[in-house]
Design a protein around this nucleic acid. Structure first.
Lengths: 132, 132
DNA sequence: CAGTATCCGCCATGATACTG
DNA sequence: CAGTATCATGGCGGATACTG
């Protein structure tokens, strides 16, 4: 019975642990979390160094408190982010990547870097340059 | 004057072409396209092989016609995807990656693969297994 | 400092129907 | 086959106010 959910998920791709191309596959949910608007940036930020809430808030420019909280809780519940509260007052909470998060970030960083380094080669940037 | 937009964007990070962590940076827009719900999957799909519309529609399970069209147009306008219409009737349209898209996909594929291969290690999957 | 609570607009997404 | 057009809606995301 415990296997039924996996059987169902992998019914059409028996030998593949998770196929993001298959609708209804759990991996798609995780992929959505990871590639969400803020998820990528938060993971990439924490990859550079563990950070406290406020630091993270400043590092990822433009993120609202709500979205930062929501994103962090999501990534924590996925097992990518570790939340450590000092339990002091005033509160101090440190966020870092779990080993799983580290593996993921190792793939995310090159992506974020590439986009940053190559925006100007995109047609989007070309178009802007012309109209300017 | 033509440089003003870039100056503004890079005002706080002069030597970096595009910093996704900076709000208002173009690279963030591109990053959003690339990491959008369907963008990742479409790019990854086309990386495996060029495809026609219908083939792509079937490959990326669950995507609506509207979203497929929208995603393709977006990626095309970014310069990642090449659209080639045969001009015949009935119509035949082939989609493939541009060289720029190839570079991007090379970074995306490992990410998609990793997520697919490691979903079961996430807390999300662990939680599901317990309740089952 | 590190959040939570609440309200709300709006747009991304989806379903359906239609077309050259 | 390869789309477009239209409509409906859920939730993403922002702004603001409040708290231990």
């Amino acid at each position: 019975m415990a296997d039924s959910i996996w059987d169902e998920i992998h019914s059409d791709t028996p030998s593949i642990p998770g196929n993001p191309f298959a609708s209804g596959c759990l991996s798609r949910v995780v992929l959505d979390h990871v590639t969400s608007k803020w998820g990528v940036l938060v993971l990439a930020a924490l990859a550079s160094e563990p950070m406290r809430w406020g630091q993270l808030h400043r590092y990822v420019e433009g993120i609202s408190e709500k979205m930062l909280a929501q994103t962090l809780r999501q990534l924590e519940s996925d097992g990518f982010v570790l939340r450590q509260s000092a339990g002091t007052v005033p509160p101090r909470v440190d966020y870092s990547l779990t080993p799983l998060g580290d593996e993921l970030a190792a793939l995310l960083i090159p992506l974020v870097r590439w986009v940053g380094d190559n925006v100007q080669r995109t047609s989007l940037a070309q178009g802007l340059a012309e109209t300017a």
